[in-house]
Design a binder for these strands. Structure first.
Lengths: 204, 204
DNA sequence: TATTGGTTAGGACAGTCGTCCTATTGCTGT
DNA sequence: ACAGCAATAGGACGACTGTCCTAACCAATA
């Protein structure tokens, strides 16, 4: 395994701690303790708490770009959008415990009136633009961005409610509903029909 | 105007500050300063920060019950559910700045692993049960609760995204989409047809 | 070997946090 | 008028915060 630098270790641990406990509630001491270094050493790599937040957001932006690029290898726009929807299932345990990393960070930074909130929203922007591209490929010329935002919003709602109630059944039910919603969209240029599969009870 | 007691003033200010800045980021000094009293006086009324959080949650539970009871005066279940959807419009400015008070509090308390998160989720529970009652009145015997949770989740997603992007157009578009979703539901026992009205561009 | 410069540790700093204590004020009932 | 008690003010407390400083280490180079 590649040995990661101290700076990378700090970013990794800060990323996880900000997700699990929130930015404000996570202290320098928490991060330094998780990495196993002194606060002085920490300060040698990041000169302020905002600097580490900035690095974490950059890290998440990069990770998101890489994930979206990876999904581009999928056969059709439908399958790519389904890959997005499926992350709710893949990350369900963490989502039920801590919510969506993107949504909760934006929510917190909004309340703190933090300057980095705009950069955090860019992560949403990446998903929005990528999803809009997929919907455009499905023939939605005028409403591709609206569809992308709608899907993003639905996902965020699922994360918030599943976290508040710790309700995996609700999460799975809403994912099934989203998949049906995608399948039911009018698709002018649709080239490939998804095979139908059994679904859970749904409500829309 | 009725003169409010110091305790009520504390609860009011703490409620607003917890909403606007978050629970963790709001200090005793912030609240005492907003009310205009000393920290010592504050501690005479609430012996810990958890105690004031508990009072704020109780306050929100009571306010929610009162609001739901008030909506019961509306003519039909459809109109009552529409009243719920319309709070996104009514509170749009605050929602775009601070998100949904219920959702953001639950999100924060989840991350803090705070014992009061269960009580905070009860506020969602009030909405869920009330909405389920309305859907049941519309003839949805089996899926009333699923419909209620779906609508709650949709609303939460709207709040998160509208707050992240400060996008009022998205908020209004999603509200219109929700109204159409409600109107398009199969309603076995529907007694009154809503009059159609012009809608914004929507995406589902 | 001597020097350099990046890395690390650990403590100092002022400020703030939630909490607690004491003294004083002000009202109420007798 | 006086006793009693709630309400209020203000400061002390230890712990923790983000920040900064200095000294030691360690590897590479001259």
């Amino acid at each position: 395994m590649t040995k990661r630098s101290t700076r990378e270790l700090i970013e990794e641990n800060a990323d996880a701690l900000f997700y699990q406990g929130g930015f404000e509630a996570t202290s320098f001491a928490d991060i330094a303790n998780a990495v196993g270094i002194s606060r002085g050493n920490f300060y040698h790599h990041f000169k302020s708490k905002d600097a580490i937040l900035d690095a974490v957001i950059t890290r998440r932006l990069d990770a998101t770009r890489a994930m979206l690029e990876h999904w581009e290898a999928d056969a059709s726009p439908e399958v790519r959008i389904l890959a997005f929807i499926q992350i709710l299932i893949t990350n369900r345990t963490k989502i039920m415990a801590f919510g969506c990393p993107v949504g909760t960070l934006n929510t917190e930074l909004s309340k703190l009136d933090h300057a980095a909130q705009n950069r955090a929203a860019e992560i949403f922007g990446l998903f929005r633009d990528w999803l809009a591209k997929q919907f455009t490929a499905l023939g939605h010329n005028d409403d591709a961005e609206a569809l992308a935002l709608h899907l993003l919003g639905r996902s965020q709602g699922v994360a918030v409610m599943a976290s508040a109630f710790r309700d995996e059944g609700f999460l799975r039910s809403e994912v099934a509903s989203l998949e049906d919603w995608l399948q039911g969209l009018p698709q002018q240029l649709k080239t490939q029909q998804l095979k139908t599969r059994p679904r859970m009870t749904e409500c829309s």
